[in-house]
Design a protein around this nucleic acid. Structure first.
Lengths: 213, 213
DNA sequence: GGTCAGTTTAACTACATGGTTAAATTAATC
DNA sequence: GATTAATTTAACCATGTAGTTAAACTGACC
């Protein structure tokens, strides 16, 4: 076994590369991203990048895993901790919103990934998605059986939740950039900035719950 | 003035190029699309492509315009024809769903466009979006004033509607491709195939309407 | 201070891709 | 059937980009 400082420095550069790659892939997508840009923005020689991580596909796979790998487990855990279907559904939504809040690279990357039919998605990640949807199906079924929820199409509900959050968050840059956009549209939702989870949860629950109290 | 047949043939090739470009851009996105592939799949020499249409940006702008240029006007018109806020909201949703049904290139292209912050969107198209959202704001405000709807965040509602449809439609290829996906997820929503408009409308109205009859 | 493994670097290669050009082809008009 | 303008084509060019290589550097250990 050799030095420690070397290893630390080395893993530091690797992390820096990963962090930068994450941003760049989110900005430009897989095809729009150039290894040179990543190297430059990470203050690293391109060969170092290849030495530390590998080719473009590997780098992208790493980013994907880092970005959306853990969300699934979070969701499953958070849902398990909640008691009623209603609480579970709230936890489900909060988890997704929180994940997106924590790393804003999720919307662009996921939307592009869906757009391209998930060609670049590692099997492991797809399996994560499956477990997430399965969780939601469980929640909805339980709710329906208990007479709390109406009958629904789980896959659609999931896309409604995910779509709301992804598109809402993902559109903020456009909205902010288009300075000539009518103020009525730009300002109307300032009040909920950063926390749409509650609003989405409210709407989804209203849509799904049978009786209103 | 010269021949007519020439012009017809010429415009035919141009249309063929446009049609193919649409598909290819939808499949691979702007950066992932190569002019050679378009030319090949359109059975046209690459120089012909450039002669008929122009460079890549121009071609893409044409595609964008063709794909999502007319939807906005459709929505505004359809909404204007409806009477009550509830009917208007239904028309709004039906219009979007119908547009997506008619050309399945919308989801991938729009999602990627949002993902990249709308950098490639012609101003005209952005203006169309604005008019759409403005329309929805009108509907929601009217409904709220009349005491039919609860108070909401229009921009979020729009993203909820659009997100549901885009992600649902856009994810079908993935779902279908992943043959190893649990049958419970794959089949659960066979019944609504091709017509999620009603389902989305039902859910959104449940979410937004004040009293339930 | 010499050696050695891990790490970084400048320079380079191979190839793909957006775009061009000049010549060939086509069909209408005389 | 010669002319002419619109259209198509094969071959070409310039540039950008993923990936490589061999040499230089770094710091721990003897």
């Amino acid at each position: 076994m050799t030095s420690n400082q070397r290893k630390e420095n080395s893993s530091k550069t690797a992390e820096k590369i990963l962090a930068v790659a994450r941003k760049v892939f989110a900005e430009h997508g897989y095809n729009g991203t150039h290894m040179d840009e990543i190297a430059t923005r990470a203050n690293v020689n391109k060969a170092t990048l290849y030495y530390q991580i590998g080719d473009k596909d590997t780098l992208y796979a790493n980013v994907i895993h880092q970005v959306i790998g853990n969300v699934a487990q979070d969701i499953v855990r958070a849902v398990a901790e909640a008691r009623t279907p209603e609480e579970k559904l709230k936890a489900y939504i909060a988890c997704i919103a929180q994940a997106v809040d924590k790393n804003p690279e999720i919307p662009p990357i996921m939307m592009r990934e869906i757009a391209s039919g998930g060609v670049n998605l590692p099997r492991l990640v797809v399996e994560d998605f499956v477990s997430v949807i399965a969780t939601l199906m469980g929640i909805l079924e339980e709710g329906t059986k208990k007479g709390i929820f109406i009958e629904t199409i789980p896959f659609l509900i999931h896309m409604m939740i995910l779509g709301s959050i992804l598109l809402y968050k993902g559109s903020l840059p456009i909205k902010d950039r288009q300075t000539w956009l009518p103020a009525s549209i730009r300002n109307k939702d300032k009040k909920i900035k950063g926390n749409i989870a509650n609003e989405v949860a409210k709407l989804i629950l209203r849509a799904v719950k049978k009786s209103r109290v």
